[in-house]
Nucleic acid binder design. Structure first.
Length: 844
RNA sequence: GCCCUCGUGGUGAAAUUGGUAGACACAAAGGACUUAAAAUCCUUGCCCUUUUGGGAGUGCCAGUUCGAGUCUGGCCGAGGGCACCA
């Protein structure tokens, strides 16, 4: 019997698919489209197991939809601008472009080895001029629409990467890539006005019903919509200051007002800039760290001014005004009114500076003389000690009532505030998309005239300079427009801009004039299924949602808002970690075991290895498995099969050598089964097997359901079961007249998972029409069924009987059966419950 | 501190959404084949009983129900997100 040689057969089919352009996609309005997209990779050098999992999941879906008759768009590209190329270039004195292109070449070959159904005709790379020239046009378009602006402000400065980071890119006070503690620095920066769409971005999350709830909640928190009001406080004590504006969500606690706090960056700080005590104070504020603990434990400190704020609801009450370290300038108006009784921060502050703590809300279950003592009470209740507000339910009624009063008195008005801030896109980097802006000698700026586009990155420049390499290229910086000399902007765009619209480019990747073709986009968009890691839950997905809105803003042609109809976030690939006696991380390749308990170093078996917890594969912990090695060892189908088998795709999966090996063996078994059936097929046909048709149809019914719900691990179990059934039935050595028909349905059903093997087997059996098989409903009906028999809710046995048996007949049958008689004894049946064709429960 | 998610064998996990808990796989133990090993195949899996059989059992405690892994309330534990957002 022939053995399955995956090396030859996988290469054969990959060549076949490529030569026949099987995955080439074209607009076809007669067919229903399906756009399946996985997050495109950064070309860092080689693919890793995370890619294998991500792209296998997408490929299973694409191939399934294709078999179901959809016109499937399944493209791939490269998120190829970014820091690693620049760093590698510095180290190896190699052009980032060449480094990137080499990596793309390698990774593309690796992806091809996986047998993915990708339309490589649509390949794009964000660092190519063909791509980023359109991005520059977008920038200008957005600039003209007022969605881009320049502003000097404090930025998150990454001292290692020497660049600015967006708020979203700072994690626990550290740079998301470098891990360096982020510093505050004042810089002039370009911003995208994402806040323009804050409300919409928040509201329309509700309509994304094919997104994981987790991601929607994360975005919701990030956008951070809050309802409240702004209040103007009259100020006395200095003629130069008349009013201070505050934002609050709890205006109803105004009678608990005992101080007003403003940020050290508040415009009023101007009046104190020469005051040495204030300078001292500001210094102290900036020193408090940005780490998790330091913020949580940071002491509330203040600097008392000579100003007093008047309570707008009772003008006789005046309270001091402080600069305080816990007030942020970039939220609200950089000023808050302090109500120590019902806000913990205000409480801490009041304790420290011995300010009055008034109780104006009492919890529902407390007496009327309730007093805040050890901590603030921010919860719901009833307003007290507040004159005309007394008795209102807080916060629902009381907030609305207070806003009404404030609006009537023209002291304040309803206001909705967002946590979301505009997206700073300037990066002091070489390897990114140049920003199409020019400055004249006076520093005033304008967008680059259309005919001067695109702005290409200069080549062969020195990257080993301090700061931004582009600012050191005198020649490149100068540009003549209408005979006048201008200087180019030297910052480049955040690479998240590149990935904010690539899904549109895939619709018409070859269009030279336009970033995309409207006809194509109308047909293909939105992406029906987007698949990627949950780490992009906020950054990339929010930016993309913004970008679609920015394009459709003031645009009659383009009306789409949500880029991704369905989102699926897959889990990570994990592996055990190993450390040797010297506490060094060791890779799985270096480690061996004989009994599964004691591990040793392969090269030195006196060196005991300590097995650590299983963690997501990472270079730093050296617990990675190289996909290319595994593919060479076991073949692409086996790897695809294994990566889907053990855990649901949304959860982390554990890499296991044993599991991988058994998947490989199973692939062989499937081939052996195919050989056996091929043999049987040469025999004389016998009658058809009802049992076979029944099994296959029920199997198809299950697998289709599981394919549609991403229950890919269950599919693998279904395939094992089907194989086991088919092996049993072929042992009878009968060429049933329905054998090939039914078996071929099985072969087609496994094509999305193991495309090479399936194609080969189908080919060997000379089956050429390959469509997803329809389930024949008549085989789903069981004539005989098992009914669970319970007495007092306890299972006492199973009764095999005819389907749709009448309840009375069933009861008769049970009562005359010896097996059940003993449970009855002399008891009488008080009541019974019958679930048709499933279960009967007697109460005795 | 606030928000979200999840707790099922030695392990990864299934379970028609309230109706046979543990499908399928990994690991383990025992057995068959073999001179032997590898490979392959079969069996077992908590407690009591020689077996037939019976009991307990889905983090813990209650509740709803004829019936709860699934629903409700409380507690415990793990993971993730946010971080002085007024």
């Amino acid at each position: 019997m022939e053995r399955y040689n995956f090396k030859i057969i996988e290469a054969k089919w990959q060549k076949f698919w490529e030569k026949n352009e099987v995955f080439k996609t074209q607009l076809n309005k007669k067919k229903k489209k399906f756009y399946c997209l996985e997050m495109f990779p950064y070309p860092s050098g080689k693919i890793h197991m995370g890619h294998v999992r991500n792209y296998t999941i997408g490929d299973v879906l694409s191939r399934f939809k294709s078999l179901k008759g959809f016109n499937v768009l399944h493209p791939m590209g490269w998120d190829s601008f970014g820091m690693p190329a620049e760093n590698a270039a510095k180290e190896n004195k190699q052009d980032p472009k060449i480094w990137t292109e080499n990596n793309i070449e390698t990774m593309k070959n690796q992806l091809k080895q996986l047998g993915l159904s990708i339309d490589w005709n649509r390949e794009i790379s964000t660092c190519s001029e063909e791509y980023y020239k359109h991005q520059q046009k977008f920038f200008i378009e957005m600039f003209n629409k007022g969605l881009v602006y320049k502003k000097e402000n404090y930025v998150n400065w990454d001292p290692v990467d020497q660049t600015v980071l967006a708020n979203e890119q700072v994690i626990d006070g550290k740079g998301w890539r470098s891990g360096a503690v982020v510093e505050r620095k004042k810089l002039s920066q370009w911003f995208f006005k994402i806040s323009e769409f804050a409300d919409e971005l928040q509201n329309e999350l509700d309509n994304l019903d094919e997104w994981p709830n987790k991601v929607k909640v994360m975005q919701q928190n990030w956008i951070g919509k809050s309802f409240g009001c702004e209040i103007d406080f009259d100020i006395v004590g200095d003629d130069k200051v008349k009013k201070i504006k505050c934002f609050t969500t709890r205006p109803d606690t105004l009678f608990g007002f005992s101080f007003l706090a403003i940020s050290v960056d508040h415009p009023l700080s101007e009046f104190y800039r020469n005051d040495p005590n204030f300078i001292d104070f500001r210094e102290k504020c900036s020193k408090s760290g940005t780490t998790e603990e330091s913020i949580a434990n940071a002491e509330k400190i203040g600097f008392k001014t000579n100003l007093l704020a008047i309570n707008p609801l009772d003008k006789t009450l005046k309270v001091p005004v402080y600069f305080a370290n816990f007030v942020l300038m970039d939220y609200g108006f950089g000023a808050v009114f302090g109500c120590p009784g019902h806000d913990q921060r205000d409480f801490d502050f009041a304790k420290k500076y011995k300010l009055e703590i008034k109780t104006v809300v009492k919890p529902l279950n407390e007496k009327d003389d309730f007093k805040v003592t050890n901590e603030a009470y921010p919860g719901p209740g009833v307003i007290i000690n507040s004159k005309f507000l007394n008795g209102f339910n807080a916060p629902d009624e009381s907030v609305i009532e207070t806003i009404k009063i404030l609006e009537e008195k023209k002291i304040g008005k309803k206001k909705i505030n967002f946590r979301l801030k505009d997206w700073g896109v300037s990066r002091q980097r070489y390897w990114g998309c140049p920003i199409p802006i020019i400055y004249d000698e006076n520093g005033s700026y304008k967008t680059v005239p259309e005919e001067q586009l695109p702005i290409k990155l200069p080549q062969n420049i020195n990257l080993n300079t301090k700061g931004n390499p582009l600012s050191n290229t005198e020649e490149w910086r100068k540009i003549k427009v209408d005979g006048k000399t201008y200087y180019r902007e030297t910052d480049t765009l955040d690479t998240f801009v590149d990935s904010s619209w690539y899904y549109l480019r895939f619709c018409s990747p070859k269009n030279k004039e336009e970033p995309f073709d409207n006809e194509e986009v109308k047909y293909w968009m939105p992406v029906d299924q987007y698949i990627g890691g949950v780490e992009h839950a906020i950054l990339h997905l929010l930016y993309s949602r913004f970008f679609m809105r920015a394009i459709s803003y003031q645009n009659n042609e383009f009306k789409l808002k949500e880029p991704f109809k369905g989102l699926f976030t897959q889990g990570m690939v994990c592996h055990e970690t190993y450390k040797d006696q010297e506490n060094n991380w060791r890779s799985p390749d270096e480690v061996t075991t004989k009994d599964g308990k004691n591990y040793f170093l392969k090269s030195d078996n006196s060196n005991k290895i300590f097995v650590g917890s299983s963690e997501s594969m990472s270079k730093s912990k050296r617990n990675t498995i190289d996909p290319e090695k595994i593919i060479n060892l076991y073949g692409a189908d086996a790897v695809r099969f294994f990566i889907l088998s053990d855990s649901p795709p949304e959860k982390d999966v554990q890499w296991s050598e044993q599991g991988m090996l058994s998947s490989y063996k199973f692939i062989q078994k499937l081939f052996v089964l195919n050989e056996k059936i091929k043999e049987l097929n040469n025999q004389k046909k016998t009658v058809s097997s009802n049992e076979l048709s029944k099994f296959i149809n029920q199997y198809l019914n299950k697998i289709e359901k599981n394919l549609s719900n991403f229950h890919y691990n269950v599919i693998i179990a279904n395939i094992y079961e089907a194989h086991s059934f088919l092996s049993q039935i072929t042992k009878k050595n009968e060429n049933y007249s329905n054998l090939i028909t039914e078996y071929s349905k099985f072969l087609i059903s496994i094509l999305p998972v193991v495309p090479h093997l399936s194609s080969e087997c189908l080919d060997k059996l000379k089956i050429s029409t390959i469509d997803w098989p329809n389930v024949d409903e008549k085989f789903l009906i069981e004539e005989n069924i098992n009914i669970v028999v319970q007495f007092n809710g306890k299972k006492r046995g199973i009764l095999s009987t005819k389907k749709d048996i009448l309840e009375e007949d069933l009861v008769k049958e049970i009562l005359k059966s010896k097996n059940f008689a003993k449970f009855l004894k002399e008891n009488t049946i008080k009541k019974r419950f019958y679930v048709k064709n499933r279960l009967i429960n007697f109460l005795i």
